[in-house]
Design a binder for these strands. Sequence first.
DNA 1: TCTGGCTGCCC
DNA 2: ATTCTGC
DNA 3: GCAGAATGGGCAGCCAGA
Length: 581
Amino acid sequence: MVNKVAPDYEESELGVGDSTLVRAMCETFGRSEATIKQSLANGEAKDLGEVALLSRVAQKMLMMPPKLTIEKVFADMKALATASGKDSQKAKKERIQKMMVASRGAEAKYIVRMLQAKLRIGIQIPTLLQALAYAFVLTVPSQKGSSGVPDRRRGQGKFSAGDLEARMVSMEGAVKQAFCEQPNFDMVIAALMQGRDGSNLHEACHISLGIPVKPMLAKPSKGLGEVGERLSGKRFTGEWKYDGERAQVHVISRDKIFIYSRNSENMTEKYPDAIEAVKESLSEDVESCIIDAEMVAWDQEKKVILPFQALSTRGRKNIKIEDIKVNVCLFAFDCMLCNGVPLVKETLEARREKLWKMMKPIEGKVTFAVYRNFDDELKEEEVQEFLDESIAGSCEGLMLKTLTENATYEPSKRSLNWLKLKKDYIDGLGDSLDVVPIGAFYGKGRRTGAYGAFLLAVWDPENEEYQTVCKAGTGFSDEDLVTHYKFFESHKLEKPEANYNVTDKMKPDVWLEACQVWEIKAADLSISPVHTSAMGVKADGKGIGLRFPRFLRIRDDKQPEACGMLSCSQSASCLSLAASN
DNA sequence: TCTGGCTGCCC
DNA sequence: ATTCTGC
DNA sequence: GCAGAATGGGCAGCCAGA
């Protein structure tokens, strides 16, 4: 139900995406890619899973292959994950085809969705953990020397309603905490099978070296007003929010260091240089620890932070220190374990004190996130000033965290006690710009029957053409999507206008007349291999794209040809772009 | 051997 | 990543 | 407020086909 064959920290990807699935379906069911697109476009099917089911039902079979079993399907998934090398794509496709042909009832739909890792059944990990918790409250597994209890709502050992409720709440919290600290279903379920409950599950499943903890996440905050609501009356700290990659460093021993990503992927191979730096930076009395940090691209000569896009060009596999072109600096901001002792229940103030003692900064390699503490009387100007400083320092904004009250390390989204404050979250701030929708993509799932995303462009008066800047698929309410769909019913084009400068790679399902202006917001600019605006200005043969674009509103007061990049507002990167235009 | 498409994973 | 929606 | 499900830009790595 969680679409995984192994925990996140163990390598296993299927290497199967929509294209592979569509091709497999075409051959299996004798359909063309065009008719599949058609079923999705006309709302006959809400996703590829439904396409598969419709096709399967229409298929005439002479001989039915044996029924699928959970074991067989699981084995097939594992085989897909393992396949590699010459002709592996063909082998994968054939394996998928076999599964689809053997499917009965609604199975084809769910097999395809499993392969997409998008089950869309309203259940994901948190719900599954809740169900596990409830199941183990209601049913007590039998142990050596004691028989189990099949159902604690009746018979001997029956719980009263109130007792049952309390146990379920307690168990749910314990199971979720256990999974966050040790995100491995096999291990959590094994502990539950031993009869552990809300009171002692934690003794079996807790933060440990070599198993990545679900990192603590932050809630986006809409400006200083909300910060005040959440934090005034509490002592809190602000830290610069570096624009890099989350890094959870596990020092198992001084010679055995692993680094995990925000999503618990093992990134050790990617950062041999950072591992050396950590080793060098550790205090003598530290044997083992888990550190939370941000890995940031760093220019060693100029001693400045480089943008995220520079970091992302680093190789990922089998990296040798000599070959590294993009250097990194690790900015540590928290620690969850030290010398075998978990620290997650301590306050941030205490954890940070320990962190500062655990390692010494090495210029340009390892250091601590810049911070400023605020006392309980919130002074908005001070936070504002610190926010401005962070942006001047090439950061995205601030992380705001209580120091003592409610200041334990809470893995995952369980409690979003941390706040993140970015300029572009604040209404009226950040880069909002006006663009013209020139293409649209059919929506999937809940967006079937409308467009799910749009291709957006700006007008370049010099070349007299529309140049793309991004797609947008978020920021729309359901109502917006219906409005847009209806509006463009009478503004569709057979083919793109001659003055649409769009890369071949960008193929909308429907081309639109450049007849409406939208205000959108973005966090940043990036050098784009697919978008055509400001081509060559920042890099040869490359345009400029927008990072994290979202729809704000229709602008009825503006003409499409008034949408140039120059309308883009304050930020430094925008200004440099405007100047070079 | 080169190129482009696909996939997974960062944000 | 951001955003919206149902509960 | 949580959980789920829509959707974004862009990179390296892998594989197939030219």
